[in-house]
Simulated assay, not measured.
Amino acid sequence: MADGDGEEDGRQIRTLADLARVAGVSTGTVSRALAGSSLVNPKTRNHIRDLARRHGVRPNQMASKLRSRRTGVIGVVIPLGHERRQHISDPFFMTLLGALADELTESGYDIMLSRAIPDENEEWLDRITGSGMTDGVIVIGQSDQFDTIERVAESYRPMVVWGHYRTGQRHCVVGTDNALGGRLAAEHLIARGATRLLFLGDTTGIEIAQRLAGVEQAAIAAEIELTHFPLHLSDEEIVANIGAALTAHAGPVDGIIAASDLIAMAALKELHARGRRVPDAVQIVGYDDLPLAAQTMPPLTTIRQDIDFGAKAIVDRLRRRIENEDADSLVMRPELIERETSRSRGVSPRPF
């Protein structure tokens, strides 16, 4: 216990017992309040924390963790089974990681970050959840590891995943309705006159596969042509792959739907290099609405995932699961953010 120099009613406050006396509660209640336990009502918890801050009283963190059998650490892991050369520096990962870090640190947790390349034994997640080094685990993306995550979720409760929800699954997920997002993107371009669509993205991962499924649904309903070009997300391959896709489909394509904003930005750059004007010759819609999306030239139309809200929902659900409380999955509704890459001049909207 660190010493404090505060006084209350003429008596120094140095210990949890002193805080309990002043707050009019038990020492156990003070200990639980300072640990952030949901067993203490928010008003009392905030009052006790305020008293502790004012008087410089801090519990010995190591002793507290030993007593509670908690580490104060949350593991954050990014599985890359389908795209092994993708990096944590990917703009989407960095945006979500930043939002998660803010939420976790404000909740009193430290973060242990890892990038997992799943092996043939499928034990990458078992090693993390069974290490004893974390109080809970956040998985960013399911990649092609849905079955592994499901298996671990049978016996490991404090885990929340950013990803796609399947009816009846065991693991808790926070994510966007990806099929709806893909459909919104396609319907938007079709309404603006697009008749030959190109979808750019590798569909080995569940989320992108669902985005393509939504695009296909809209294309079938409008009876228009759709081509899919698998595209890897590694920095070393993305530009070359986009070049190959545009070379193969240079003539007929007038609408591109990218599986991510990063892909859409690379497509913008390649189209500019080829002298194909956006949106006059080709319209583009990305996916994610990263901060960079509004800064491209022209600004990128995209499907927005509410990453900040999603990060809050992930941390809230994880805290509840750590406390053995119920926490269900959350499927967020995506939103079309219209900018300049899909506002084609002189084209009348196509009726459905």
Rank of each mutant, 00 (worst) to 15 (best):
L231P: 06
P118M: 00
A281Q: 10
G4N: 03
V30F: 07
G275M: 02
A240G: 09
D110C: 06
L197M: 03
T302A: 01
D110H: 14
L39R: 15
H47V: 06
Y156Q: 05
G28L: 08
A52L: 13
G310P: 04
T301V: 01
G130N: 14
S342K: 03
G175I: 09
M112F: 15
M62L: 11
S155R: 15
A221W: 09
L100Y: 01
P230Y: 03
R151I: 09
P351R: 12
T15W: 05
E225Y: 06
T15A: 07
A209C: 05
D316K: 12
R192A: 02
A153P: 00
R127N: 14
L292R: 00
A33E: 05
G163I: 07
L292H: 05
R85Q: 12
A240P: 02
Q145V: 08
L180P: 02
D326T: 10
D280P: 00
I206F: 07
I224M: 00
G251E: 10
I314L: 11
P349G: 13
S329H: 02
G98V: 07
V76F: 08
S107W: 11
Y109G: 09
Q142G: 12
P334S: 08
A250P: 12
I238A: 06
T203K: 04
I111S: 05
E236C: 05
S26Q: 04
H47T: 13
Q145T: 13
S342Y: 01
D144V: 09
I48Y: 07
G98D: 14
I88A: 13
L100N: 04
T95L: 07
D144P: 06
V139G: 10
L198P: 01
N46L: 15
D261S: 04
Y287V: 00
S107A: 15
R304Q: 13
L189M: 05
V174Y: 04
C172V: 15
R21Y: 06
G205V: 07
M159E: 05
I206Y: 06
Q86K: 12
H171P: 04
E187P: 00
L39E: 14
P351V: 12
A266E: 02
L51I: 12
I322R: 00
S89R: 11
G346E: 11
I238L: 14
